[in-house]
Amino acid sequence: MTLAGEIDHDTGETLRQALDLSVTGQPRIVADLRQVTFMDSSGINILLTAHHAATEAGGRLRLAAPTPAVLRTLQIVGIDQIIDCHPTLQDALDH
Rank of each mutant, 00 (worst) to 15 (best):
M1D: 09
M1N: 05
L3S: 06
L3F: 11
L3K: 06
A4I: 09
A4Q: 14
A4P: 12
E6L: 06
I7V: 12
I7P: 08
I7L: 06
D8N: 13
H9Y: 14
D10E: 14
T11L: 02
T11E: 11
T11Y: 11
G12Q: 10
G12W: 08
E13T: 10
T14Y: 15
L15E: 10
Q17R: 14
Q17D: 15
Q17K: 12
Q17V: 13
A18N: 07
A18G: 09
L19R: 12
L19F: 04
L19V: 04
L19E: 12
L19C: 05
D20E: 07
D20Y: 08
D20M: 07
L21R: 04
L21V: 04
S22R: 13
S22I: 08
V23H: 15
V23R: 15
T24G: 13
G25S: 15
G25F: 14
Q26N: 15
Q26A: 15
P27S: 14
R28T: 13
I29V: 15
V30W: 02
V30F: 10
V30E: 01
L33R: 10
L33P: 03
L33S: 12
L33K: 09
R34W: 07
R34N: 07
R34L: 11
Q35H: 12
Q35W: 11
V36Q: 00
T37Q: 09
T37D: 14
F38L: 02
M39F: 02
D40E: 03
S41N: 09
S42A: 13
S42F: 06
G43L: 03
G43Q: 06
I44N: 03
N45Y: 11
N45V: 05
N45K: 06
L47S: 13
L47V: 10
L48V: 14
T49V: 13
A50P: 05
H51Y: 12
A53P: 08
A54E: 09
T55C: 08
E56H: 09
E56Q: 14
A57V: 01
G58R: 00
G59E: 07
R60K: 09
R62I: 02
L63Y: 02
A64K: 03
A64M: 00
A64C: 05
A65P: 01
A65G: 08
A65K: 00
A65M: 01
A65T: 00
P66E: 03
P66M: 08
T67S: 05
T67E: 04
T67C: 01
P68M: 01
P68D: 01
P68A: 01
P68E: 05
A69Y: 10
V70G: 04
V70E: 01
L71M: 05
L71P: 01
L71C: 00
L71W: 05
L71K: 09
L71E: 07
L71T: 01
R72D: 11
R72Q: 14
L74A: 00
Q75C: 07
I76P: 05
I76R: 12
V77I: 06
V77M: 02
V77F: 00
G78V: 04
G78I: 02
G78T: 02
G78S: 00
G78N: 05
D80W: 06
I82H: 12
I83G: 08
I83D: 06
I83P: 03
I83E: 00
I83W: 03
D84R: 02
C85R: 01
C85T: 10
C85H: 03
H86N: 05
P87A: 07
T88D: 11
T88R: 09
L89P: 07
Q90W: 05
D91R: 04
D91E: 10
D91K: 00
A92S: 02
L93Y: 10
D94S: 06
H95Y: 03
